[in-house]
Design a protein around this nucleic acid. Structure first.
Length: 463
RNA sequence: GUAGGUAUAGCUCAGUUGGUUAGAGCACUAGAUUGUGGUUCUAGGGGUCGUGGGUUCGAGUCCCAUUACUUACCCCA
């Protein structure tokens, strides 16, 4: 068999030991916060029935689902006419009945419906698993990436929304981020705006356009609105909304006036104000809230399913898309036949957070823990002589290893150096004769002769 | 799906209007140092210059095609 050139599938990455240690550092901090707020972990399968996933993410989203070819002679049962016509989209469900999960929310909805009789509502769960999307990779965008989702179903209390703001703040601060913005919006406000304009059916076009304010500026947004079916008169009404200024309270006040004729819009504002009120009480410091939380009506995401509050988090310390997002969906499980169950949740983009922490140099050294001590291996005699010490070190909880072959000391020390092992124990003729061990500090280069108990108490002072 | 950019050693990259045997740094191996790493010095291994075609006396260099990677748009974490 001819050797093939090794390569990674597009948009995927290997995680080497150092990277894994850093990734776990992120996951551990996020998990600890989730647990602290009462969420419990679940996992769902890597792949689901294709039917479970399609139709949940909009047309664009459906195209990005990785489908898994059926086993066996999958073309035998496929409709001939569709193959003749090369109708890929229609043919796909006939030859691919499974697909890789696209996010964690839809599998969670399926989970809730299937386990409804064993769940105590409200059910609070978190889930940290990879998801797959078949889009074109670019900076901060991968085809395989991890989401850290935390959701609660069966509770319509806005306390949940408020706690998610706290979770974001606590987790991101815990990771060392200092300047980020938790943006809040509400689907009902967007609906209200579209209503006031008399164009409720254009809500998606409207929000997609004004969402780009940061990127293409006011003029660009206005042009896009015109292209998407809005009139000059609509634009005029929209200007004060798009360019909303001031504190969160001031913004809410202005919106209240604009949306006076829209009951649903006013409800959205009520919700935002309630959430902000809870957040202030929970944080206990208005200045902190104003610094990290921002009412931003240009925020548009997940419009296919979000019905209430919408979240998005951006870091201001690095150029990166959003590092998290979420929202409320009133009918999370309706698509699986269980109506009237509301859900709200957020997600952390772990891979992007990793890139940001890397760029800002925020990974602590302790995130990269390794073997504490390496025992050298001079010859077979020393190797055997080392084994009891190795056993005692490990029994005392010291991460330790014996160099697995008789090799030049230079090579063994280089190994310790490359692996950043802080101590090396040298065992040769002298040590065997004296019964002492040479303990070398790799950082200072100092070397001492110690007895076994001294070695153990030095490397494991608390054991 | 649309539009750019890039492709030379394991990695990051030089390579002059087309001209002899394609280079550097890092990494690796060995020696200087037969029981001492990280610094230093010396030597060594490692290349069908992404692939296929074309122009030319001659192509890493120019042209065409193709593939892969990459950046941006759409969309999204």
């Amino acid at each position: 068999m001819a050797a093939i050139k090794p390569s990674l599938a597009k948009g995927t990455r290997d995680f080497s030991p150092t990277e894994m240690e850093k990734r776990n550092y992120i996951f551990d901090i996020i998990k600890a916060v989730f647990a602290k707020y009462g969420y419990r972990e679940i996992q769902t399968p890597t792949f689901e029935n294709l039917q479970t996933l399609t139709g949940k993410y909009g047309d664009e989203g459906d195209k990005l689902i990785f489908k898994i070819l059926n086993s066996g002679d999958y073309l035998a049962k496929a409709p001939g006419n569709l193959m003749e016509e090369k109708a890929s989209a229609q043919l796909a469900p006939h030859i691919a009945e499974k697909a890789l999960r696209y996010d964690l929310t839809v599998p969670f909805a399926r989970y809730v419906v299937m386990h409804q009789h064993e769940l105590t509502l409200p059910f609070k769960r978190f889930q940290i698993q990879p998801v797959w999307r078949a889009d074109r990779p670019q900076r901060g965008r991968y085809r395989e990436f991890y989401q850290c989702d935390v959701d609660v179903v069966g509770s319509d209390s806005l306390l949940n929304e408020a706690e998610f703001v706290l979770i974001y703040h606590e987790a991101l601060s815990g990771l060392g981020l200092r300047d980020f913005t938790i943006k809040l919006n509400n689907r009902k406000i967007l609906t209200g705006i579209a209503e006031v304009l008399g164009k409720p059916e254009l809500i998606v076009d409207m929000t997609v356009a004004i969402d780009k304010l940061d990127k293409i500026g006011l003029e660009g947004v206005n042009n896009e609105l015109l292209n998407r079916g809005f009139t000059a008169g609509d634009l005029e009404k929209l200007q004060p909304i798009i360019q909303l200024q001031g504190t969160n309270t001031e913004k809410a006040e202005q919106l209240r006036q604009v949306l006076a004729s829209s009951p649903i819009g006013l409800k959205g504002i009520d919700e935002i104000e309630t959430v902000l009120g809870y957040v202030e009480k929970l944080v206990g410091d208005t200045a902190v809230v104003n610094r990290f939380v921002e009412l931003d009506i240009t925020l548009a995401r997940g419009l296919n399913y979000y019905t209430g509050c919408i979240f998005e988090v951006k870091t201001n310390e690095a150029t990166m898309g959003s590092i998290g997002g979420g929202g409320r969906y009133d009918d999370l499980t309706g698509m699986f036949g269980l109506n009237g169950l509301t859900g709200v949740g957020i997600s952390f983009g772990a891979d992007r957070i990793y890139d940001v922490l890397e760029e800002l140099g925020l990974f602590p050294n302790t995130a990269v823990l390794t073997t504490q001590v390496l025992i050298s291996n001079f010859d077979k005699l020393a190797e055997l002589y080392a084994l009891p010490l190795l056993r005692k070190l490990r029994a005392a909880g010291v991460a330790s290893e014996l160099y697995p072959a008789t090799a030049k000391l230079k090579k063994q020390l280089s190994y310790a150096d490359a692996k950043k092992i802080p101590y090396v124990i040298l065992i040769g003729e002298e040590e065997i004769a004296s019964g002492l061990f040479s303990l070398k500090d790799m950082l200072t280069g100092e070397q001492r002769m110690l007895g076994e108990t001294e070695v153990l108490s030095f490397l494991a002072p608390n054991a």
